[in-house]
């Protein structure tokens, strides 16, 4: 058996081991490569930065805990950016698993840093089932869909919500998603009510959103951990996404190496088989 045939028949667990090592090593030996800023993240940053101070922004936690490693850095960095600009933040979620809890944890922790008060500077509406009904209904009245906030306080008792009835009072929506709810935000809210939107999504979803970016339906796009890392750099707060890029580099190179080895093996074996049959 040649070395290529051995590679071809390699137990999948060796591949797993290589990936595991590629993830662990950069944690122990950081590499710190420069991260360049892509136009889609820059335009997102500019759009948020050019919002009028003290305006109201919706920060939507439409991701499951399973993709928190990818999406949470976006939420954290956006909350920093918005609180820094004294924007009022409304958080909500269309995800029946964990969205409201993650919104609560992220915003409350960052609000402390900027001395922001719940009910005055930020509100967590929580979750209601059925994204289509929720998004469409908030166009008529937010209070009709969310009579109370996540902890059961009526919206009428939250001073920040006095001046917010529906999308008309919302200056920007930042949708962070790992699923199709981002599509609903674009087709129902952006197209129907004209609220400017930015999308932060998992890397798996990002290629699709270039179409919306190209059509100016969204003002910017944070695609996966790289998008989050770029945003972290832009606001000067390198965090978990920035640190994760070393690991990403290593694993990507391992996978590329595996693909190259697999293909060399494939061609060598194919050539040998052809010679044999000739």
């Amino acid at each position: 058996m040649t070395i290529w045939e051995r590679f071809d028949n390699m137990d999948r667990r060796w591949v797993y081991l290589m990936v595991a090592l590629a993830v662990i090593i950069p944690f122990l030996v950081p590499m710190k490569f420069d991260i360049s800023i892509t136009p889609e993240v820059q335009s997102f940053y500019d759009a948020v930065d050019n919002l009028p101070d003290s305006c109201t922004v919706m920060l939507v936690f439409d991701y499951y805990p399973s993709t928190a490693a990818e999406c949470e850095p976006m939420a954290i960095v956006a909350a920093h950016h918005l609180f820094r600009k004294d924007c009022k933040i409304i958080t909500l979620s269309n995800i029946p698993y964990g969205g409201p809890s993650m919104a609560e944890t992220v915003t409350r922790a960052i609000a402390k840093e900027y001395d922001k008060k719940y009910g005055e500077d930020f509100v967590n509406l929580g979750f209601k089932y059925g994204p289509i009904a929720v998004l469409k209904g908030m166009g008529i009245s937010i209070e009709s869909i969310f009579p109370t906030d996540n902890s059961g306080t009526p919206l009428a008792e939250l001073p920040m919500m006095d001046s917010v009835t529906n999308y008309e009072q919302v200056s920007f929506i930042f949708e962070i998603a790992d699923n199709a709810t981002a599509d609903y935000w674009i087709s129902i809210v952006n197209a129907g009510y004209g609220v400017p939107m930015g999308v932060g999504c998992t890397a798996v979803m990002a290629p699709k959103f270039y179409a919306f970016l190209g059509a100016n339906q969204i003002v910017g796009l944070l695609g996966g951990m790289k998008g989050a890392a770029e945003y972290e750099i832009l606001i000067g707060k390198p965090g978990t996404a920035y640190r994760g890029m070393d690991v990403q580099s290593m694993v990507h190179f391992v996978i590329i190496a595996l693909v190259i080895i697999g293909n060399i093996g494939f061609f060598v074996t194919k050539r040998r088989n052809r010679k044999k049959s000739a």
């Binding site: 993830v23 399973s66 993709t67 490693a69 990818e70 951990m225 640190r243 990403q248 694993v251």
Partner: peptide, 13 residues
């Protein structure tokens, strides 16, 4: 690939 690795990074971290 980036998406899947991101999730693994979270757990490894």
């Amino acid at each position: 690939v980036m998406g899947r690795v991101s999730l693994l990074i979270g757990r490894t971290q």
